[in-house]
Amino acid sequence: MLNKLLRTLFFLLIVRPLVLLGLGLNIRNRMGLPSKGPAVIVANHNSHLDTLVILSLFPLALLPRLRPVAAADYFLRNPLLAWFATKIIGIIPVARSQKGGNPLALSFEALSRDEILIIFPEGSRGTPEELTRFKKGVALISKKHPEVPIIPLFLHGLGKALPRGEAVFVPFFCDVFVGSPQTWEGNKEQFMQQLEEQMAGLAEQGNFPLWD
């Protein structure tokens, strides 16, 4: 109960003002965002800010249902960070190195509870503002829950504002491109290819300034 209140306050008083003033959002096709769960948001990953921005795209009333899927080995490495990640950010931890059990079991449960998963299939923030190959976990989720819409989201600018390995935040506008929902059609390779193509298409919509 207290954690729930803290989560709401954290997003209302810290994250949203930071996202709106410190960054500023240009959102294309905002109507494409799901208004209720279950759903899966698939986004490219450049910065820790990615999660905060995506969580700010939805009305505060939906906040309890938003669950970013994140690496257990990184976010559960000490008790304080683990509390912050699971209770305040609300992550679903997933084990990157498989040792028995289904690493996606918690994600399946969340979808059954009508929650909205946020997944970064690149697996890591990597080199800022560069798209890398997607890992296949999202296809497994779609296969298990074929009725759930998978919505691609392309983010630009956050890798400039706070890239991996940097502690200094520098304000930059963030562009958000919402793609069209995709559902399971029975083939893993085809599903992943379609998703990657859609993401590349969203990236091409932007007219981004050079960052060299």
């Binding site: 500023g24 940097e166 930059f172 300034p209 060299d212």
Partner: peptide, 12 residues
Amino acid sequence: LSMIPTRRADRR
């Protein structure tokens, strides 16, 4: 600064 080309090296 979001509109113009900038360099990675110049973040700080």
